[in-house]
C-alpha cells in the first residue's frame, strides 16, 4: 500500500484551482482558434478573436479568465493500492476542500458558494464545499480533476426521461432545443456534455464527466462517436453563434458518455458548458 500525505493532496488541488482560473486548456484555445478560421459571420469572428485575446491577457497578466471562477467540481479517482496518510482523522474529502479553500484565497478567485440555497444564502467565503465525485480504480495513484464550473451555463443544463424506444433523432432534436434555450445567457460557443443511460442522477453525472474529455476526441464506441458528430452539426446549424449574436460556431464540441440502464428507461442529461471551459488534472 502506498500512502500520500494530506498536505500533498491539498496542495495539488490548490494549484489545480489556480491554474484552471487563469489558463484556458490548450484543446479549448485551439478549438476557438479553429472556429475563428472557419466562421463566416464577421461579427462572430471578432468575438472569437476577443476570446483568444482574453485568454492571452488572463495568462500573461494573471487576471482570471472570467469573474465567475466557478463552483469547484472535483473528480477523484483513487487507486486500490493507495491510501491517505491520516492526519487527525481528516479524510480525502477534507484534503480536497482544504485545497479548494487555499486555491481560491491565494489565487484571488471569486468565492461563489452560499452555505444554504433558499433561506439566507450566506456566502461561505471559502468557495467550499466543493462538489466531489469519487471513484475507485486499480493501481497506486490518485487522479484529481478540478473543473471550475460557472453558474450561468450550469443554470441552463437539463434532464429528460425518454421512452426506451426513442430514436436518436428525438435525442438530437431535444439537445438542440436545450442549446437554443441556453442561448446568449450561457456564453456560447458551448461545449455540450451529454449523458445517456444510467438512471436519473447517473445520467447527470455522465454529462459532466463527458466535459472532462479533450475537445475533438470522439467516443470510443462507433455509434456514440457518430452521434457526437451529428449532434455537433445539428447544434451549429441553429445559427445561435458566439454570444448568441449569430454565426456557425454555437458549440466547440459535443461530447457523449453512456452507461447501461433499466429496460423501461432512457435518461438523457445535457450539461451546458461555456467557452471558458476550465478544467485541470493531476496524478499523484
Amino acid at each position: 500500500m502506498r500512502y500520500i500525505e494530506f498536505e500533498k493532496i491539498a496542495e495539488t488541488v490548490e494549484s489545480l484551482c489556480i491554474s484552471a482560473g487563469y489558463e484556458l486548456p490548450d484543446d479549448v484555445l485551439s478549438a476557438i482558434k479553429n472556429a475563428a478560421k472557419k466562421e463566416t459571420n464577421p461579427a462572430a469572428v471578432k468575438i472569437l478573436e476577443q476570446l483568444i485575446e482574453n485568454a492571452r491577457i488572463a495568462a500573461d497578466e494573471k487576471i482570471p479568465l472570467c469573474q465567475d471562477t466557478g463552483l469547484a467540481v472535483v473528480f477523484v479517482e483513487q487507486g486500490a493500492e493507495v491510501a491517505i496518510k491520516n492526519s487527525d482523522g481528516k479524510t480525502l474529502f477534507n484534503a480536497i476542500n482544504a485545497g479548494v479553500e487555499a486555491g481560491y484565497e491565494k489565487g484571488y478567485l471569486r468565492k461563489s458558494v452560499v452555505a444554504e440555497p433558499l433561506n439566507q444564502r450566506i456566502n461561505t467565503n471559502s468557495n467550499t464545499p466543493a462538489i466531489i465525485h469519487y471513484s475507485l480504480a486499480s493501481g497506486d495513484k490518485l487522479k484529481l480533476t478540478v473543473m471550475t464550473k460557472g453558474g450561468g451555463c450550469e443554470n441552463k443544463s437539463q434532464f429528460k426521461m425518454f421512452k426506451p424506444t426513442a430514436q436518436k433523432e428525438e435525442i438530437i432534436s431535444w439537445v438542440v432545443d436545450v442549446v437554443k434555450a441556453a442561448g446568449a445567457e450561457a456564453c456560447p460557443p458551448f461545449i455540450v456534455g451529454v449523458g445517456i443511460g444510467g438512471n436519473f442522477e447517473a445520467s447527470c453525472l455522465l454529462s459532466k464527466k463527458a466535459l472532462c474529455r479533450k475537445l475533438g476526441q470522439r467516443n470510443s464506441d462507433e455509434f456514440y462517436a457518430q452521434l457526437e458528430s451529428d449532434l455537433l452539426l445539428a447544434v451549429n446549424k441553429t445559427g445561435l453563434g458566439p454570444q448568441g449574436l449569430g454565426g456557425n460556431t454555437t458549440a466547440l464540441d459535443c461530447l457523449i458518455e453512456f452507461a447501461p440502464c433499466h429496460i423501461a428507461s432512457l435518461p438523457v442529461a445535457v450539461n451546458i458548458e461555456c467557452h471558458s471551459h476550465r478544467h485541470k488534472s493531476a496524478i499523484i
Binding site: I47, Q50, L51, N54, A55, A58, S276
Partner: peptide, 9 residues
Amino acid sequence: SALGGAGAL
C-alpha cells in the same frame, strides 16, 4: 450587452 466570459479583457 458586454462580452460574456471575457472578464480579463
